[in-house]
């Protein structure tokens, strides 16, 4: 067949690498899109404690984060050294919690609202006083699903 014989006459054809960048770019875009950059910079130091009985928080959009810890070195002058609560990207008072929860709730479709979790990211060295106050506020706001964020224990 003429078709095939013609090709044989040519010198060895190279594999075209022109589409390689496209493939790599595709991968690149995939990673860029799936990467969730942390939207809030922490003003408090949080080193979560270790535990063994952990549950994974599956849906990130259904989780709101409450950080409790001592202000980082940069913010010590502004906020002092007492442990503080950070909601979103700012240091907040306990009375800001209901509004914060409400704002998060409004971003979630109504059908999924019962699945909202609060993730308490609390520094291990903080005392229970402020944690209890936050828990009380959460209970008052009827946000009862709470997750004490922790790292898996490595023995």
């Amino acid at each position: 067949m003429g078709k095939f014989q013609k090709k044989r006459g040519k010198t060895a054809p190279e594999v075209s690498t022109a589409s390689l960048p496209d493939i790599i770019f595709m991968l690149l875009f995939f990673f860029m899109v799936t990467t969730v950059l942390r939207d809030a910079t922490l003003k408090v130091n949080v080193v979560v404690p270790q535990a063994t009985e952990l549950t994974k928080l599956e849906k990130k959009s259904l989780v709101n984060y409450l950080h409790i810890g001592k202000p980082t070195a940069q913010w010590k002058e502004t906020y002092g050294t007492k442990p503080l609560l950070q909601l979103g990207d700012k240091i907040s008072k306990l009375t800001d919690i209901p509004l914060f929860l409400e704002q998060h709730k409004s971003s979630v479709p109504e059908t999924q609202r019962p699945g909202i979790n609060s993730s308490l990211k609390v520094d291990g060295k903080v005392t229970m006083g402020i944690v209890t106050d936050v828990k009380t506020e959460l209970r008052k706001a009827n946000q009862l699903k709470v997750n004490y964020s922790a790292k898996p224990r490595v023995d």
Binding site: L20, F31, L57, L138, V146, A150
Partner: peptide, 30 residues
């Protein structure tokens, strides 16, 4: 391809797939 690879590796390295785990509790209603 090399340039794209470089970018890809950069994103691969900087991405921390941060799985949030913790001890799940249910608070009593107020």
């Amino acid at each position: 391809a090399d340039i794209a690879f470089l970018l890809l590796i950069f994103f691969l390295v900087t991405t921390t797939i941060d799985v949030d785990k913790g001890v799940l509790v249910k608070l009593p209603p107020w």
